[in-house]
Write a protein that binds this DNA or RNA. Structure first.
Length: 137
RNA sequence: ACUACAAACCGGGUUAUCGCUCUUCUUUUAAAGGAAGGGAGGAAAGUCUGGACAGCACAGAGCAUUGCACCGGUGAAUAGCCGGGUCUUGUGAAAGCAAGAACAGAUAGUGCCACAGAAAAUAACUGCCUGUUCUUUCUUCGGAAAGGGCAGGUGAGGAUGAAAACGUGAGGUAAGAGCUCACGAUUAUUACUGGUAACAGUAAUAGUGGGUAAACCUUGCAUGCUGAAACGCCACGUAUACCAUCGCUUAAGGGUGACUCGCCCGAUGAUGGAGGGUAGGCGGAUUGAUUCUGAUAUGCAAAUAUCAGAACAGAUAAAUGAUAGCCACCUGGGAAACCGGGGACAGAAUCCGGCUUAUAGGUUUGUAGUAUUU
RNA sequence: GGCCCGUUCGUCUAAGGGCUAGGACACCACCCUUUCACGGUGGUGAUACGGGUUCGAAUCCCGUACGGGCUA
């Protein structure tokens, strides 16, 4: 049964992983956001967690902690609701993905906007997964 | 009733769906699932302060550094709070009222005080007066006047300035001066009275040497340093490795994190260089000088004591959320039904006390003003 | 989380508490040139903000805002 959850296991938490993602991973911009991602074949030992994600906001653009928290919460919410198709396709091609989304805009967004943008982001990631899959197989 | 100011308090509620975190219970080999309950502020902020707590191989002393600076109380402690004193400012005829104070010392010393002004500080210059002498002029031949020099007296006058060696008036004098007197201002000491004290009042005596210590400084008091990324434990990994220097026995050097003495450490060594590894978990860590409410007692108050009751988050790339509706509040349109809009400042990060700053709107109390009614 | 430093014309900077806050580049006007550039003359333009100390603050002190650095 698919669940729209986002608990500790599905979040990207390790500092080491995140540093590696910024250093080695690929990225693309999408107007208020910038997306860092890395796709690799899933190892046999690692269990079930095929998609980990995190969000971030620069304190340079938003000085108040209230605004940063708000954006991160909205982003997480939008991701949580819409992530299921991406997860399904990752499972089918037997790969895992690390994902980090940074908000680069300068104004506080509405939830509608964030939701729309995440729809586009996740669709693009889904196509990327399939592109990578075709030459591999 | 309205307006303004000050202080204190509050800082929306609820339902549904989806979701996060912690605790307890439970199903289960485990992973995972289920149930119940808890889950952001008055400032969580600024990091301005005081502690708790922890570590530093901390005997101790000196001297720095830094901070504080009227008195009493309070408290774990403070630059906080409460009460009082003094000064300044505003208002007022005054009494008073309100606000503010970094309110020790300028007679320990050093420095500075632009421009202006004679002079910005042991008083010089100019001026005034007395004596003496020189020159010139006048002369009734005794002297007189003017100018200059020397000696002495004096600190009144000298356009300024933020500030000029107590102020005003009178006497006094060759000229003058607190030199004397009256009134007033102010400082110190002593005595008495009141007060725990700061201090106030009265009297006497001696004075009147500018300002600046948020200039250096002096005095008194306090102060070791570093801060939870502290620190302890477990796991992983590694190296009694390489290079250079010193040294192999009373010694290089290191520690005591400002310094000096002193003390301590010091040979499978020490320091430096270059390089490598790890950066996961648990504790610290969430209930403590705790907060709130009520009662009693002490106190002007801050606050304290006793009793009773209630409350108290714990994340770690970092939870406390999203969407929709209803109610309450404010507001625009409308006679009404109703339709539309709005909700501040702001997000825990070891924990407490205080200060400072931000804050839509609401409630209460006090003060002042205006209007109306009785 | 903790510690520390800074803020002067549009930009880079100077100024022992004291004269109208100085200079360079830039900008504007005029002169020079057939014109542009160069050059010359003149001008506009600032002490982050709010208080305090002082006769007098860019400077000294306090608070606020903003910016920057260090920190296993």
């Amino acid at each position: 049964m698919p669940k729209a959850s986002l608990n500790k296991k599905e979040r990207l938490k390790s500092r080491k992983e995140i540093d590696f993602l910024f250093k080695e991973g690929k990225s693309f911009p999408l107007t208020p956001f910038r997306v860092y991602y890395r796709i690799k074949p899933s190892a046999e030992s690692s269990t079930a967690i095929s998609l980990q994600a995190g969000v971030g906001v620069s304190s340079r653009n938003f000085k108040k902690a209230v605004d940063r928290n708000r954006i991160k919460r909205l982003s997480r919410e939008a991701y949580r609701i819409q992530k299921q198709p991406l997860l399904d396709s990752l499972v089918t091609v037997n790969k895992e993905m690390r994902l980090f989304v940074i908000y680069t805009g300068r104004e506080l967004p509405q939830f509608e906007l964030v939701k729309e943008k995440f729809t586009i982001i996740l669709k693009r990631l889904q196509t990327l997964v399939h592109e990578n899959n075709t030459p591999a197989s």
